[in-house]
């Protein structure tokens, strides 16, 4: 057989990448630049529409005003207090909600009898739009942080519960049978197989719980509070200081985002075998 020597052969370049690889990287870069340009366009419109008078500043303040309002807000002496109050509510709501969700989910997932007995009530509870509970929780737990934490708990425990239960129910059957063939105890099967096998799904629930806890705390503050970022936002809105309203929204988004990335990071470390 004759080898065609003149045929152009794709070669690895100096960087060690072939042509497809380089094209993929170039495409990815083009999209990144594109996204950046879209962001710039949005900011420019955001600045120009209010400035030109096409959109009243009371509806949409120019982005520069918002940036300035944010800058002055974080320098006020009351900001940090409100910030810490809300952060506190979110974190406690998230932690307690997650613990309850994990505990109940494990009981329902491992013990079929408990599921038969209690699951209908869990579903019924989930059918309640949690926000309607906010006034009730405030009359139960008062105007302070407790009612906000409980709101965050009520809204965030459910995704953890469901994912934990479903995760435990869907442990590959053969893994359990393998353990049975080794005469493992119930406890060994749980700790060595069921828990780690369900962990990826459980953690997905935990991530959702975090987002929900942020919502719970802020809704609680909206309904009745004397402190916290939700209270601050509500107050500024009432005062028509829309630039400050946007500033608080930005702060709240940052809290949510940073917490989410933290949990995501923990997830990657903990569920190191996950394949995407």
């Amino acid at each position: 057989m004759v080898i065609e020597k003149d045929l152009p052969v794709p070669r690895a370049t100096e960087s060690g990448l072939d042509r497809d690889e380089r094209e993929r990287i170039a495409t990815a870069r083009r999209y990144r630049v594109g996204s950046f340009l879209v962001a710039v366009a949005i900011f420019v419109l955001w600045e120009l529409l209010p400035r030109s008078g096409l959109v009243p500043e009371i509806i949409l303040p120019p982005i520069s005003s918002i940036a300035y309002a944010l800058y002055t807000l974080v320098q006020t002496d009351f900001f940090l207090d409100h910030f810490l109050v809300t952060l506190n509510e979110i974190v406690w709501g998230f932690v307690i909600g997650t613990v309850i969700g994990l505990a109940v989910g494990i009981v329902l997932g491992v013990w079929g009898g408990a599921k038969k007995l209690f699951y209908p009530f869990v579903v019924a509870f989930q059918a309640v739009p949690k926000i309607v509970l906010a006034p009730l929780l405030i009359s139960w737990f008062g105007y302070g942080q407790m009612s906000k934490v409980s709101m965050a708990v009520v809204i965030s425990f459910f995704p953890v519960l469901i994912n934990t239960m479903v995760g435990l129910e869907n442990v590959p059957r053969d893994m359990v049978r393998l353990m049975q063939s080794l005469r493992a105890s119930r406890r060994q099967i749980f700790t060595k197989v069921e828990l780690p096998a369900a962990a990826p799904l459980m953690f997905a629930g935990v991530k959702t719980a975090l987002t929900f806890a942020v919502i719970g705390a802020i809704v609680g503050e909206f309904v009745g509070a004397a402190e916290g970022l939700g209270f601050l936002l509500y107050t500024y809105n009432f005062q028509l200081r829309i630039d400050r309203v946007f500033s608080v929204i930005i702060i709240l988004s940052l809290i949510g985002g940073i917490l989410y990335f933290f949990v995501e990071w923990v997830d990657k470390k903990l569920i190191y075998w996950r394949q995407d």
Partner: peptide
């Protein structure tokens, strides 16, 4: 425990290294 069982699928625990998978019986 004097009988070993092998399935159609390997049924390895994906969070355990090869060595730790093989050590599973002795742990149990």
């Amino acid at each position: 425990r004097r009988i070993g069982f092998m399935f159609q699928q390997p049924v390895l625990l994906p969070w355990r290294s090869v060595r730790k998978n093989v050590l599973l019986p002795s742990e149990v």
